[in-house]
């Protein structure tokens, strides 16, 4: 199991170049209007983002994609790719996810030979699918034989750790404060995986209206360090 976990670690590493470092998922709008300005306000934002948006979109998608791969139901995977893209109403975060998904897919393809990844890439090239990092990540985890819940946990961790690093640069926060938060939020991530295991398709894509609105407002932010 260690070698599989280690292999998945590589995808979670913040040096793994998917472009996540240039996305704030609406956080930058909060920073600019000074609602998020220190570690306390940022951790409040982060917990809302995880509990009210991430688990219902990327997190639940990880779970459903994994189950579909287990059942060899690729049509379902493609359906989830579309659902994940279309529920992402703010254009910047939607297009950002597509770009990250595609970059991750290209990179992973030079590391592994996974037939389903080639199929996914072909569909994206033919504009039948859109591409999303949660789906690419789950395809790799499933190929490696990592269990579903571990795969979800690792994926959530990779998203959250890159957001924290972006917050450290953007707010800015001290490096130590950032690392402390990554430590503290691990409990929340465990709980998030538990929460996701109790969700079904009917819960898909529930958004937190404020975070979504800030993602839309980000399009109009003039001076920016992040693309979303």
């Amino acid at each position: 199991m260690d070698e599989k976990i280690l292999a998945l670690f590589q995808l979670c590493d913040s040096n793994f170049p998917t472009g996540a470092f240039s996305h704030s998922y609406g956080l930058e709008s909060y920073i600019q209007d000074n609602t998020v300005h220190n570690i306390d306000t940022f951790s409040e934002w982060l917990r809302v983002y995880i509990d009210e948006q991430l688990i219902y979109s990327d997190g639940l998608a990880c779970q459903l994609v994994y189950q579909s791969l287990e059942e060899d139901d690729l049509q379902k995977v493609w359906k989830l790719d579309r659902l994940l893209t279309m529920q992402n109403l703010p254009r910047e975060t939607r297009e950002g996810a597509m770009r990250m998904g595609e970059r991750m897919l290209h990179l992973v393809q030079s590391l592994y030979r996974i037939p389903v990844l080639s199929g996914y890439r072909k569909r994206i090239e033919e504009k039948q699918s859109f591409g999303h990092p949660a789906i690419v990540f789950t395809m790799v985890a499933h190929h490696l034989g990592v269990p579903n819940s571990t795969s979800i946990l690792f994926y959530l961790y990779s998203v959250v750790s890159s957001i924290v690093q972006n917050a450290v640069r953007g707010i800015p926060l001290g490096q130590t404060a950032g690392q402390k938060l990554i430590r503290d939020v691990q409990t929340d991530l465990m709980e998030a995986v538990e929460a996701i295991s109790n969700l079904g398709e009917e819960d898909f894509g529930i958004v937190s209206p404020g975070i979504e609105l800030s993602q839309m407002r980000h399009e109009r932010v003039n001076i920016r360090i992040f693309m979303s």
Partner: peptide
């Protein structure tokens, strides 16, 4: 388009950050 809202005031701080600001 897939637009899904679920407001549950008992479990969410609806007036607060991330919700209705």
């Amino acid at each position: 388009v897939y637009d899904h809202l679920k407001l549950k005031p008992a479990n969410q701080n609806l007036a607060g950050l991330g919700f209705m600001e």
